[in-house]
C-alpha cells in the first residue's frame, strides 16, 4: 500500500478529502430537505441539484490527479489550459487567427513541459519568449489592421491559460504538494460558495452591478472572511515549523486566495460582458463552460505560488531538469 500512503500520507490531505465528501453529502441532504419540504421554488431546486451533480463529477476529476502524482497534475493542468483556450478563443474571435492560436498552444505545451522537467529557468523564460513569438507571429500575414488587438488577445490568453495556470503544475514538483494544492482548489470553490451564500443571507449593496449584477458587497466580504480564516487555519497545519508559519503570513495567503479568486471571477465577468455573452460554454450543466468554473484559479495560481516561493521555495530538494538533464 505504498502508493496509498504517498497519496494520503499527510493528515491534512486525509482531512480535506473527508471534508469534501462530507460537504457534498451535507449539500445533498440540505437540497433534499428543501425538495421534500417544498421550501424552494422548483426552478431553484433544479438549479441547485444541477450544480451539485456537476460538482460531484468535477471534484473527483480535480482531486484525483492531485492525489495520483506530479505527472498527473501537470497533464491535467495542460488539458485544462487547452480547454480554457478553446472556449476563450471562440468567444473572442481569436480562433480565426490560426497562427496565433497555434503559438499559444505551443506556449501552453512548452510551459507545462518546463514544469514537468522541473526547470525553473525555462519556466519563467517562457513568458517573455512566448510573448515575443506571439508579437511577430502575425506580421508575415502582412495584415496590419487589427494587429494590436489580435496580438493582445493572444498574449492575454497565454498569460492566463499558459504562464499563469502552469504554476499549479509546477507546485507539484514539491514532494509535499498534495495538501496545499488540494487546499487551493477546494478553497477557491468554497470562496464562490461563501460569496453566494453570504450574499443571499445578508444581501445589500451590489458590488459591481455593471460587471456582475448578482454579486453583493456583503457576499464579497463574507467570502473574504470565511476563506481567509479557513485557508489560514489549514495552511497553518501544512506549514508548521516552516518560515511560512506566522499568523500574518498565513492570513495573507488566505486573503490572496479569496481576493484572487473573486478577482478571477470578476475578470471573466468583464470579458463576458464586453463580448455580450452569458456563459463561455455549455460543457458543465449548471456552471456553463470550463472557464466559468475555473476562472477563480487563473489568478490564484501564480499569486499564491510566488508568495510561498518568496518565503520557502518550491521543490528545492527535488531533482531538477529531470528530462533535459542540464545544470
Amino acid at each position: 500500500m505504498r502508493g496509498w500512503d504517498i497519496a494520503f500520507g499527510h493528515p491534512v490531505t486525509q482531512g480535506l478529502v473527508a471534508a469534501t465528501i462530507g460537504i457534498l453529502l451535507l449539500a445533498a441532504a440540505v437540497i433534499g430537505a428543501l425538495t421534500v419540504t417544498g421550501r424552494a421554488s422548483p426552478a431553484l431546486r433544479r438549479e441547485l441539484w444541477l450544480r451539485l451533480a456537476s460538482w460531484a463529477v468535477l471534484l473527483p476529476l480535480i482531486m484525483a490527479p492531485i492525489l495520483l502524482g506530479r505527472e498527473w497534475v501537470i497533464a491535467a493542468v495542460t488539458l485544462l489550459g487547452l480547454a480554457c483556450l478553446r472556449e476563450y478563443d471562440r468567444a473572442t474571435g481569436l480562433f480565426r487567427e490560426h497562427w496565433l492560436v497555434a503559438v499559444v498552444v505551443l506556449g501552453i505545451l512548452a510551459v507545462n513541459f518546463a514544469a514537468l522537467d522541473h526547470w525553473y529557468g525555462f519556466f519563467v523564460a517562457l513568458w517573455p519568449l512566448t510573448v515575443t513569438v506571439i508579437a511577430v507571429a502575425s506580421i508575415p500575414l502582412d495584415r496590419p489592421a487589427g494587429y494590436i488587438q489580435r496580438t493582445a488577445l493572444a498574449i492575454f490568453a497565454y498569460m492566463l491559460f499558459g504562464a499563469g495556470l502552469a504554476h499549479l503544475g509546477y507546485m507539484a514538483n514539491d514532494p509535499n504538494y498534495r495538501p496545499l494544492l488540494l487546499l487551493l482548489v477546494l478553497a477557491v470553490g468554497l470562496n464562490d460558495v461563501a460569496a453566494f451564500t453570504s450574499g443571499k443571507l445578508i444581501g445589500g449593496r451590489k458590488l459591481l452591478p455593471a460587471t456582475s449584477p448578482n454579486k453583493t458587497l456583503s457576499g464579497a466580504l463574507g467570502a473574504l472572511v470565511c476563506t481567509t480564516l479557513l485557508v489560514a487555519y489549514v495552511a497553518g497545519l501544512i506549514f508548521e515549523g516552516t518560515p511560512m508559519d506566522s499568523t500574518w503570513k498565513l492570513l495573507a495567503l488566505g486573503a490572496l486566495v479569496s481576493i484572487g479568486g473573486q478577482a478571477g471571477d470578476l475578470m471573466l465577468s468583464s470579458i463576458k460582458r464586453d463580448i455580450g455573452i452569458k456563459d463561455m460554454g455549455v460543457l458543465l450543466p449548471g456552471h456553463g463552460g470550463i472557464l466559468d468554473r475555473f476562472n477563480s484559479l487563473l489568478l490564484v495560481a501564480p499569486a499564491t505560488f510566488h508568495l510561498i516561493q518568496f518565503y520557502i521555495g518550491w521543490g528545492l530538494d527535488a531533482p531538477t531538469r529531470i528530462l533535459t538533464g542540464g545544470p
Binding site: R90, A91, T92, G93, F95, R96, A145, G146, Q149, D274, I275, I277, D279, G281, V282
Partner: peptide
C-alpha cells in the same frame, strides 16, 4: 486606425 470589434464564433454556445 480601423474599427475593431470582438467577433465571437457564429456557432458559439451550441451543443456539439
Amino acid at each position: 486606425m480601423s474599427d475593431w470589434k470582438i467577433k465571437p464564433a457564429r456557432d458559439l454556445g451550441l451543443p456539439t
